[in-house]
Amino acid sequence: MVSYLDIIRSIFAGVLVLGFLSISAMFLIWWERKVSAAVQNRYGPMRVGWHGLLQPIADAVKLLLKENICPKSADKLTWWLAPFFSVAPVIMAFICIPFGRKLIVSDLNVGIFYIIAITSVCIFGIFMAGWGSNNKYSLLSAMRQTAQIISYEVPLTISVVTVLMFARSLSMQDIVAAQSKYWFVVYPNLTIAFIIYIISATAEINRAPFDISEAESELVAGFHTEYSGMKFAMFFIGEYTNFFVISAIAATLFLGGWQGPFLPPVVWFLLKTYGIVFVLMWVRWTFPRVRIDQLMSFAWKVLTPIALINLLIAGLFLVK
């Protein structure tokens, strides 16, 4: 009996997560276009629905109806599997994100570790896409992306570890509970960790100013050059869902997660998450793209040493 209930619960959670995820991705795509337009004194999409709110749906329908072209010399299996590899890990990361006190699919005791581990699998999707396309631009882009993600994973993980030292737990709900008095971002150590996290997360999800692997002007969209139709849409959804996940983790680890006065927890959680999303969009539409050597030296010469020293100081502070 219990097992049946578990199965029903899993299916329900899966449907809920997938539904939320696709709506959120569509909203983010619309919002991104609106923010970019606002920064550049334009209107952005205005025709489809109220202020263009239904524009992403129109785009999705267009992409669904498009032909799915596979290049003649592509590595077929790798090429076909790549979009799934880039979307599936991101969806799996939703398991551990706490939307509210009880609103979490599963509060694993290794929560944040699981999320960091599972989102790293996205690199496989991107590398498979670059390799399978049999296109030199795609391959170059995939190489860059892999190097970038692996480099930025180091400061990102170190900054997360700083949080874990304060929270004394890996479980996401315990981390939220540890912030019931003050948000973690108010501690000086964790403020630095927060900034490092945000910077390396931007690089992790491959957004401007760290979007060298998609650089339109030099790599013609990079690893998804050869994809069209629904496969391209999957990369797109994966990218924006990853964007949401990264912001949600930042909100949970540093801004007190779903905790907040008056409003229901879900509203607080979404407010904080979309606040960070807005900041990242604002950053994207402000700064130019960095060069690959600047990107790598920034990760290894600036972020990683500062994160390590920050971790050391946090440790000394906690030992007393």
């Binding site: 004194n41 334009r42 604002w282």
Partner: peptide
Amino acid sequence: LSVTFKNIFIPRIT
């Protein structure tokens, strides 16, 4: 960032 933030609130020119 402050330059772009100010631009968000000025009227649209298109």
